[in-house]
């Protein structure tokens, strides 16, 4: 006992205690649920077996079931579109803004800070605002589009199955721009000025400097931002819940929302688990790539 107190006061027992508490918590509430999730995805879990500890084992039947659902295809492609389009636009708009605010003009960093308002707001509230912006009859977006002559007629953003997914994507891009912009700004600021000055003396024009200095030096940063973008896009749930709830007729549904619908709306919990297991594996693979990419940064 004396020895334990002593090592906690003065030795490595202190480290083990501090580290152990947090890790124990994460093992109970994060790692164990993942394992439990895998187990449930191999069982039949529904309203009747919910509280039971002895549930029928069905092997890969749940995985077979989700892939044989007719909407599985739609949801798979929706998820791909949701992720790819969100990232392409978040990244390019975010990068453009980062480059723009990198220039020297009064208030540049202050204005850049204002963009972050979009990032800190609860996604559900952002969803509510966009739902109102997107409103069919009285929405301001339709008004702007028709009065500028871009659209001939009102677009029913949230109730037209052909556009609902794109409406969600637009709102998600709006949410993701600030994060992309800030991370890329930090990367841009970390490129030393003298590298540009050297290139200018070597005769490189503005575009050439961007292509031969900015892009290569930002590669690690861009890799990190893209991986984080995939991760955050796959976390997006609140926005869908607020805007379309996956509808109409699953036309804007994506995997993470689908998983939740199985578990909490139709109570086919084992199907929800199966979708969730697949997505978690994917997210973890992306995260591993991200962690690796941040370890191999330039020394700047």
């Amino acid at each position: 006992m004396q020895g334990i107190i002593r090592t906690i006061r003065d030795g490595s027992g202190f480290d083990i205690l501090l580290l152990g508490l947090a890790l124990l918590y994460l093992i109970i509430f994060s790692a164990f649920p993942i394992i439990y999730n895998i187990i449930m995805s191999l069982q039949t879990v529904d309203m009747f077996t919910l509280t039971s500890f002895n549930r029928p084992f069905v092997g890969l039947q749940n995985y077979y079931d989700i892939f044989s659902q007719p909407v599985a295809r739609t949801i798979f492609w929706n998820t791909v579109k949701f992720v790819v389009l969100s990232i392409v636009f978040q990244l390019s708009i975010g990068f453009g803004l980062a480059l723009f605010f990198q220039q020297d003009f009064p208030g540049a960093s202050y204005l850049r800070g204002l963009f972050l308002a979009g990032w800190i707001m609860p996604a559900l509230v952002v969803g509510a605002i966009w739902k109102w912006l997107f409103a069919g009859d009285f929405g301001v977006i339709n008004y702007v589009l028709t009065s500028l002559g871009i659209a001939d007629d009102r677009i029913f953003w949230l109730s037209d199955p052909n556009v609902a997914l794109y409406a969600v994507i637009i709102a998600n891009i709006w949410l993701g721009i600030p994060f992309n912009m800030i991370l890329l700004s930090v990367g841009l600021a970390s490129i030393p000025r003298d590298v540009y000055e050297a290139a200018e003396l070597d005769g490189a024009g503005a575009f050439e400097r961007f292509r031969s200095i900015t892009l290569p030096l930002m590669r690690a940063q861009l890799g990190a931002v893209i991986s984080l973008g995939v991760i955050f896009t796959l976390q997006q749930f609140d926005l869908i819940a607020a805007l379309t709830q996956g509808g109409p007729a699953d036309s804007s549904n994506v995997a993470q929302y689908w998983s939740w619908q199985f578990s909490f709306q139709t109570y086919e919990i084992s199907l929800g688990s199966a979708v969730s297991v697949l997505m978690i594996i994917f997210v973890i693979v992306v995260a591993a790539v991200y962690v690796r990419s941040t370890r191999h940064e330039h020394s700047y």
Binding site: F32, N37, Q235, F237, Q256, S276, A287, A288
Partner: peptide, 24 residues
């Protein structure tokens, strides 16, 4: 590394096992 991995787990995917576990 494990902590960095746990940072990215989406709530919407973790909620199913957590719900069942907490319920039990």
């Amino acid at each position: 590394f494990a902590i960095l991995m746990m940072q990215v787990l989406p709530s919407s995917l973790m909620v199913t096992p957590i719900f069942v576990m907490f319920n039990q």
